[in-house]
Simulated assay, not measured.
Amino acid sequence: MVSTSTDHIKYFRFLNYWMDNPQFMETVHTCWEKKLASTVQWGIEAGKECVLCKNAEESAEHLFLQCQYARKVWKRILESIDQHSTVPLVWEQFQNWCIQNGKGKRATAQWFKTVLTEGIYGLWIERNNRIFENKSKKEENIAKEIVCVTMARISFKNSKM
């Protein structure tokens, strides 16, 4: 399945069903479009290497899909919703995987969409905390936080129905 511009619009329309935080959606949308700027492009001297694993140059694809730190976070959070697949390593495959697993209104799709967006945002926040505040957390702690926020969001959404 090849993702199209229409798929991207549909994807964000269904992600936006519960999200009121514009900064959050901007981060997720920027990630989705693979337009994350490095700190060097923002005029910040933080280096080009990934601050999460320190093993590769930072890019959107590396930060969210290929970084060993991120892969451990994804594994833990996906297991929490009984999603036993592996996050793809290639951006276009990741987009198709997201669209495929997030389709529909069934509970598993809702969990998947929420975990996905919280995962992206959580990894981005961790990256920024390391760069701007010199603070870091272990991947299991980030994963636990993402799962807790996901559970709260799903519970809140369901209580409004």
Rank of each mutant, 00 (worst) to 15 (best):
M151E: 12
G43L: 07
K103Q: 13
W18Q: 12
L116M: 14
E118H: 11
M25T: 10
G122W: 01
W42F: 14
C98P: 03
I44Y: 12
K72A: 08
Q66F: 01
K35Y: 04
T108C: 12
M151G: 06
I154Y: 05
G47F: 08
F94N: 08
A37K: 13
R76F: 02
E92K: 09
A37I: 08
H62D: 02
S5F: 14
Q23S: 15
D82P: 02
A109F: 01
C148R: 15
G104Y: 03
A143M: 02
L65P: 09
I131N: 05
P22W: 07
E139V: 00
F94M: 09
V51F: 08
Q66S: 04
I146A: 06
M161S: 06
N141P: 00
E61V: 12
Q100P: 00
N134A: 09
E61Y: 03
N55F: 02
Q68K: 08
K135W: 03
I77D: 01
E140I: 05
M161V: 04
K48Y: 13
Q95N: 02
M1E: 14
A70G: 05
Q68L: 07
N55I: 00
L65H: 09
D20Y: 09
D20A: 10
F24D: 05
S85L: 11
K113Y: 00
W124P: 01
T150L: 06
H84Y: 15
R71N: 03
M161T: 05
A152P: 00
V115C: 05
V51K: 08
L52D: 10
S136C: 09
V51L: 09
A46I: 01
F12P: 00
T108R: 15
K54S: 14
Y69G: 04
